[in-house]
């Protein structure tokens, strides 16, 4: 029969309390990281797709009313959202007041929405950076602690043969392995998401002024 003492279960059962605690933290980190990666991947992908579709439509019709109606279909698109906030501000004047003042108010509303959108896009992503940076160190801490206790135990056995030393070190190293397993996807996900968020942010920055102009230069 298979002896579980030499498998993953064996490594975990022989590990100390600190190592187990470290492993639990790393497991939690890993689960949350993957959840963030999956959630953000879907969110950003949808945002990019809808923003592109909205921009195509916007430059096609060049009518703020039609664009606003169409933007209701792109609720996840960042650019569509920003346009909507500008349009709402534009309609609140309803042709009254100074156009210069109105322009400044619309620009402000668009900027505010752009900031909110940037925050939305970047939310949870720093956690990936935190995991990517700290998980290996947390794992290393578990390993150091495990080796420390292992050597302490070896001192009692009064034997320094490889067969006595190796199991303890092997058990301790699982913490480093877990740390790396949590950190590597987190770092990869962080880099990918940051790059995509950067693309959206540049789009917002670029098209925000076009939206403001569109409200006052309507054909």
């Amino acid at each position: 029969m298979f002896d579980l003492k030499f498998g993953i279960i064996g490594l975990l059962s022989d590990a100390g309390a600190v190592v187990l605690f470290v492993l639990a933290i790393l497991l939690l980190f890993s689960i949350v990281s993957w959840a963030i990666i999956a959630f953000k991947f879907g969110y950003i992908r949808k945002s990019l797709k809808e923003s592109k579709a909205f921009l195509d439509y916007f430059f096609e019709v060049y009518s703020v009313d039609k664009a606003f109606t169409k933007s209701e279909e792109y609720k996840s698109g960042s650019l569509a959202r920003i346009f909507r906030s500008g349009y709402i501000e534009y309609r609140s004047f309803d042709g009254k007041g100074d156009s210069r003042h109105s322009r400044a108010r619309i620009a402000l509303a668009i900027k505010r929405e752009a900031n909110a959108e940037n925050k939305r896009l970047a939310s949870l992503v720093p956690f990936l950076a935190t995991v990517g940076n700290t998980a290996p160190f947390i794992g290393l801490f578990g390993t150091v602690w495990g080796i420390m206790t292992s050597f302490h135990a070896i001192g009692f056995t009064q034997s320094a043969s490889l067969a006595v030393v190796a199991p303890g070190i092997s058990e301790a190293l699982i913490a480093t392995a877990a740390g790396l397993a949590a950190a590597i996807p987190a770092v990869m996900g962080y880099n990918y998401l940051t790059q995509k968020i950067g693309v959206i942010e540049r789009d917002i920055e670029e098209f925000a002024s076009d939206f403001v102009d569109a409200f006052f230069n309507e054909p």
Binding site: I8, S30, S33, W34, A35, I36, F39, G42
Partner: peptide, 25 residues
């Protein structure tokens, strides 16, 4: 949506752990 993905991630971790254990056996 985030909680949904969190649950999926937890399940996936469990599956990966079970698969590695099964392969080991």
């Amino acid at each position: 949506t985030f909680y949904f993905w969190l649950t999926i991630a937890a399940i996936l971790h469990l599956v990966v752990f079970s698969v590695s254990l099964f392969l080991q056996i």
